[in-house]
Amino acid sequence: MALDKHGIAKRIARELQEGYYVNLGIGIPTLVANYIPEGMNVVLQSENGLLGMGPFPTEDEVDPDMINAGKQTVTTLPGSAIFSSAESFGMIRGEHVQLTVLGAMEVSERGDIANWKIPGKMVKGMGGAMDLVASAKNIIVAMQHTSKDGQSKLLKDCSLPITGLRCVKKIVTDLAVLEVTEDGFKLLERAPGVTVEQIQAATAGKLTVQGEIPEINV
């Protein structure tokens, strides 16, 4: 059975390590915050200028001057810090953030990512995505393996305008966990009950499969 978005977020949460500073993008990546292992110290960075993003506020705590990069109301935590957008992207470009998790429309077998524009249809802008993918040491993409009309989103080359080149390290989809290698997408894990053949059929880019592929354990 394919993972739902919470399953994808849970699996990505297993990539977190003690002491990590992490930037979570909008959508499925935001859900990763719900699955940080108990007792692990992970600090969430929000690129509008907040380190140490806390949970959503209670009704009484709602403050229009406290939002995250998704424009949602949030809270601070003991030890939080607030700063300007220039400082925020300084710490991103300066590689002080250990892990970035973001969504994508397409990923190529070399790790190129497209997630900001559909020519003639959707032009919302790249926001901070280009800065994040150009600078982060470790980038994990959270997305569905195929588009709503069944087209593979893991391609030989991206067909949409690129957000960044050769930057994605790992991809967690509803069907599989894959690593981007010199030899294309390497299949690491498969969703419970999903076969290697099903993943192969849903992957348009080069897929390498070595030995037994374990099921994702979430």
């Binding site: 957008s85 992207f89 470009r93 032009v123 802008g125 926001g127 280009m130 800065d131």
Partner: peptide, 19 residues
């Protein structure tokens, strides 16, 4: 306005804009 060409738009990565 953007898609119809009425408005001129320059989209810049957020960190680049700030810097």
């Amino acid at each position: 306005q953007l898609l119809s060409g009425e408005l001129e738009v320059e989209l810049i990565p957020q960190g680049t804009l700030a810097e």
